[in-house]
Design a protein around this nucleic acid. Sequence first.
RNA 1: GGGCCCAUAGCUCAGUUGGAUAGAGCGUCGGACUACGAAUCCGAAGGCCGCAGGUUCGAAUCCUGCUGGGCCCGCCA
Length: 584
Amino acid sequence: MIRERVRAIVAAAVAKVLPDQAQAEFQVEPPRQAEHGDFAVNAALVFAKIAKTNPRTLAQQIVDQLEDPDHLIEKVEIAGPGFLNIRLRKGVWHRALQVVWKERDGFGRSDAGQGKRTMVEFVSANPTGPMHVGHGRGAVIGDVVANLLEWAGYQVAREFYINDAGGQVWRLAHAVLARATELRPGVAPVALDAEDYQGEYIKEVAQAWLEAGGDPAQPFATIREPLRAFATRWVLQNLIQPDLEMFGIRFDKFFSEKTLHDENRLEAAIRLLDDKGVTAMEILPPPKGQERDPHDDEFVEKPLKVVKTTRFGDDRDRPLFKTTGEPTYFAADIAYHFDKISRGYLRLINVWGADHGGYVSRMKAAVQAMGGELEIILFQLVNLMKDGQPFKMSKRAANYVTLRELLETAGADATRVFFLLRRGDMALDFDLGLAQKRDNTNPVFYVQYGHARCAAILRKAREEKGLEARWDAEVMEALQLPEEIDLIKRVLLLPELIAHAAAALEPHKVVFYLQETIAQFHGYYTKYKKTERVISDDPRKTAARLYLVWAVKQTLANGLRVLGVSAPDRMDAPEDAAEADEVA
RNA sequence: GGGCCCAUAGCUCAGUUGGAUAGAGCGUCGGACUACGAAUCCGAAGGCCGCAGGUUCGAAUCCUGCUGGGCCCGCCA
């Protein structure tokens, strides 16, 4: 990478001026202002204090020691408080653009991750009902983070944790039984409890269960286990997996919580924590500022086995077992994460909604105690809006907007981009009216159109002139317009942009990069469409520009692939954009 | 009472991890197609980067304290 070569040149000079500081960090960055050259280096500012001189003098000393055997540098200036503004020869940029031709669909990849085995766990929606828009945000963030890590050289597995054990799934089973008795005349009715799931889909589950031979005349206690198994599997297969498929999201594994209990896996994980000395028997205090309620029989004053998560910065120690003796959800989650570690995943990443914020420190503490490394992406919640007004929804109530409705009205591409248009730690207002609009206020069309426009130019060159874009080092110096050099620089930014977004676990950066890149291309295209066209009578310029357009197209395609968004070669009329989404 | 997140143009948001004159989209106003796609582009107007201190060559960015908003807070999942 060019930036690294420039850094090496400066670092060598710094080492001569200040032999002791050779390993210290300084920045080599593209400056905001074009007049400041190709790279701004702040080495003199960073080292001035150590060198006990003023930055500008030090900058001059560094410049005096610069050696540039490959003749990359055209000009170096000392500017402002002591920046080195470095301008490279244009030929350096021309030659560098060959990398796109060499790497093609792989352009943008790097090996920063060095194949480190990494697991991204995301969605993990409870198998008790349809997914809502909040799950959609987590799904897109998780999927694109996983893509980013793959592109940055990690070996990535995607996993979905199925919470198919515990109290909520009994609520689901009971609700299904209640609805089944309604559907089967003559069977003694079982009433739907207030805490049971109320949604219409429960009737579908009940119908399917009856068709599969379920017998609603049996008492709940005797059939609840097979009913639980049936209902959670049905929800997963009919409500959750189809949505993920529409979204284009695949998981390497769906991991069942139930199997952890069935196979006694909690025990081994807890024993490990015992060995590490981070468990204890404790009577847990009530939360700060609250009195113990003597009438509340749910919280018996009785010692419980806990993980001493306070040692890792948690507010309080967390129980592994309830007073009833049953394991907590936390205990099962520990077993699950122990399993991940045992399978050799050195880096664990979980994608959670902000409503799980209180769970972060305890889970990190537990994983750390087991010798693992856990990072959690907490994304802020999605506020549903309709016509500018908050649109309240509740999971138990029958009416709420599902992810599927959203995918069906807005399409997978637009939904993905919409969710990635903000940083994850910003709350997101999702306007249902806006999601259904299919005009240029929707940014996905902008980027896809840019890709299609590049494709159109290449198509025209092929059909009317018989010309194919290809790398030819001899003609590249025909690219002399400042906008052309800027476009080359922008294209070459993709690998570091992806590596940077992966390191920060911030997928939205890719969206902004693509928007800026295509805007730059549109500007170039429009400015010169009457004077310096891509396809002209000058064979050298035409060949060089066709390659540049091809490289921009490849860059956009690769960026879109990371986002999981299609890159169409032609756009249909705006009214028919819905169909265009399906073309991958 | 405590913890996490947020506050930047009229609105929605970026801001390269501390750099030089803070950017984009939408909206407003004014322009640009007889040739590669006008789903586009160019220009103008619009800012106390929530407030007050601090750290240093240098702060939207880091630290402290406020103000306002979101989420969470006993063994649910």
